[in-house]
């Protein structure tokens, strides 16, 4: 089992903030737009270093996305930052028309995704955003797994020409990937080779999947761990290679069952290499108030549940 060390818990939204500053230094056309959430989406450092390239949009997300599309038409590279719910569900049609169909170089920076937003409750906890963004033709959907990878994914999003949705979160989570590894859009990162079951995870559940793999190893089960940091375009080849070897899979995500990574994986496997798959996700319901740890446990989004799901998947082979 490959060893990963948590170098200290950090919030992935701060990884975005750090990556955005690097992107701003690299390309003078990078802009930051927010809808009255500058501190929450960690745009403060960018605004301080590049005050003329920070565009406050006030509490008007539809206008922000439209303005970003126009800025992109003129050659700028705007990042629009807000909470995941307000940068997807609230402005879905604006994204569809002005960003996706218009194919403008707009980056949708999505913070506070999932239930681990915590105490604010269901109004602010979107568990549907990946489904919404995956459904849009041409939209790149990135869900990096920790702080370091979020820095690199933000840089990659800035360099890529076209619409990108990048999802990150509020809670501090283990930081364990190589800070210098460049982010490759469209690649599944194989975190640990194994032969009995493939654990497919995205976002901070990659850490939970690695913990699960360690526990399974102690039971004599060899688990391969895939980090799907790009949900779209989906790296079917890497998934099929892995499941071709292991014969079954568990998919773990902080998202509802409908339209998320689970269905992406199931679709690829059903079409190419049918295999038993177990799903770790939020099901079909809204979130609620609580601490991130309480909610992760209540919704079964942790290593213990991944271990149990892996046993089930293996038994179904």
């Amino acid at each position: 089992m490959k060893k990963y060390t948590d170098t200290g818990k950090k919030d992935t939204r701060s990884g975005f903030g750090a990556g955005l500053v690097l992107a701003g230094r690299e390309n003078p056309k990078v802009l930051a737009l927010t809808a009255d959430l500058k501190p929450s989406v960690k745009m403060g450092d960018f605004a301080k270093e590049f005050p003329d390239r920070f565009v406050e949009c006030g509490i008007a997300e539809a206008n922000m996305v439209g303005v970003a599309s126009g800025l992109a038409v003129t050659g700028m590279v705007p990042f629009c930052g807000s909470f995941a719910e307000f940068i997807t569900g609230r402005v879905y049609d604006q994204i569809r028309q002005e960003v996706s169909y218009g194919n403008t170089n707009v980056k949708l920076a999505s913070s506070h995704a999932g239930i681990t937003l915590g105490e604010d409750g269901a109004t602010h906890q979107t568990m549907e955003d990946i489904a919404l963004m995956r459904a849009l033709p041409g939209m790149v959907v990135l869900v990096p797994c920790d702080y370091n990878q979020t820095v690199q994914a933000t840089l990659a999003a800035a360099r890529y020409v076209g619409p990108v949705y990048i999802r990150f979160g509020r809670p501090s989570v283990p930081n364990f990937t190589d800070p210098d590894e460049p982010f490759e859009i469209g690649k599944i990162y194989n975190m640990n080779p194994g032969t009995d079951v493939t654990l497919v995870a995205t976002g901070h559940l990659v850490w939970e999947a690695l913990q699960a793999a360690e526990q399974l190893e102690a039971e004599g089960v060899s688990a391969e761990v895939l980090n799907v940091a790009t949900i779209k375009p989906f790296d079917s080849k890497a998934l099929l290679e892995s499941v071709g070897k292991t014969g079954c899979a568990v998919v773990a995500e902080e998202h509802n069952a409908q339209g998320g990574l689970g269905e992406a994986v199931a679709g690829v496997l059903a079409a190419n290499r049918p295999a038993p798959v177990e799903f770790i996700n939020g099901g079909d319901r809204f979130g609620e108030s609580g601490t991130p740890a309480q909610l992760m446990e209540a919704y079964g989004l942790d290593a213990a549940h991944i271990v149990a799901a892996a046993r089930k998947a293996i038994a179904r082979k």
């Binding site: 439209g66 126009g70 038409v73 604006q94 002005e98």
Partner: peptide, 22 residues
């Protein structure tokens, strides 16, 4: 830019205007 879903072209034009100023 595409248009037809009403209410959106003004924001896109405003973005172009800001892009030109910047």
């Amino acid at each position: 830019q595409p248009s037809g879903s009403l209410g959106q072209g003004l924001a896109a034009a405003a973005g172009i205007a800001l892009g030109k100023k910047l």
